[in-house]
Nucleic acid binder design. Structure first.
Lengths: 206, 206
DNA sequence: GTCTATAGATTGATAGAC
DNA sequence: GTCTATCAATCTATAGAC
């Protein structure tokens, strides 16, 4: 931690503060307070506040990419890999409860600000989407892979939103289980007697 | 429009601006520009910016309540009423694409600001939740009604988030159809041969 | 009820000493 | 590379004339 460059420490602090307070509401004073440098010193590392945001987004993109590659290596099969994604909701419960999903909340905030970096921020979503898409394709559902990826992305975003609004951990756990079951229904050999549609139409009785 | 009181015009303008720009990023100057009054004149109607937010939230609660009562009266049965809810995503597509869901985005912003009115803002969610809960109960699913309401609320929030991020109208239409089909599966006489999963399944021991 | 003028604090950003 | 001092703009909020 102490061997990080000042620039890295600024990005680290800004990353956390943008997540917890929002971008617009986080000031140089806030970041300086965490990093323990003077406000003037900022401008040796970044010319504008927007540049800090760009660095934070690049940082998040890199972190996300690394995480997806880790899941890719660790998961024994696509189903297990997708479950890794779904379980973010459980693993990050404490943060999501308080601040929502970092990807979704930054995306919506920048959209409202009509910020120049909004498209770049949405690329974090695209990383997940593309990765999930490939997993579903590997499960043998090439034709609908992207559609399934978007569907799962939407559901996890919705659950994160409800978690933030209602702080109901049992609901999150239940939705996580449902999503895992839904993925499992796509991991079965296709073309059999098991039918599903969209969300998860039908599942065999247990 | 022109026969509205100045106070009402302020709340109207603030409502729209808070939605499109976010609360923190909307200034008195912005609102004054829309309402066409001087900044000083604000304080004759509201003591603080927070008071404007309170009025906006109260306004949204009243609007939502009225809308739910309209759906209640217009819908011939619970299934049709719930479809009214789902179709907000289609009816408000243009706004959602640009600014997301007004309920969800205000809720997450106030959570990040740790704003005093955050709980009040979340009550809009609760209005929908309670209303949906009663519809599912009327469909004969009392035991799991609240769970189903939360599930549907989460899904619509997730779809709104994806709509805002990817601007994919076809995806929204498809998800809307899936949600309607899902509701329909609960409108069938229970205990028959139609099986559903998703939120549907019997609640397990908890 | 609406205005102008302005206070007082904070914002993002700059200049220059060390 | 870090600091202090400071600028100009903007913010919420107040005071007082009309």
């Amino acid at each position: 931690m102490s061997d990080k460059t000042t620039r890295e420490r600024i990005v680290d602090a800004a990353d956390r503060l943008f997540y917890r307070q929002g971008y617009a509401h986080t000031s140089f004073t806030d970041i300086a307070g965490v990093v323990q440098i003077s406000r003037g010193n900022f401008y040796h590392h970044f010319k504008t506040k927007d540049e800090i945001l760009e660095a934070v987004i690049a940082f998040r993109l890199a972190k996300t990419q690394a995480m997806l590659e880790r899941w890719e290596a660790e998961g024994k099969n696509p189903e297990e890999r997708i479950r890794h994604f779904i379980h973010i909701l459980v693993a990050n419960w404490d943060d999501i409860k308080l601040y929502g999903c970092p990807v979704g909340t930054l995306s919506t905030e920048l959209a409202k600000l009509n910020h120049a970096s909004q498209e770049e921020a949405k690329r974090v979503f695209t990383l997940f989407r593309t990765w999930l898409c490939r997993q579903f394709a590997d499960l043998g559902h090439e034709a609908e892979a992207d559609e399934l990826a978007l569907h799962l992305l939407a559901r996890s975003q919705g659950v994160a939103m409800m978690a933030n609004a209602f702080h109901d951990r049992a609901f999150v756990a239940q939705e996580v289980k449902q999503m895992c079951d839904w993925v499992a229904s796509y991991a079965q050999p296709a073309g059999g007697s098991v039918k599903r549609s969209g969300a998860a139409k039908r599942k065999k009785t247990r």
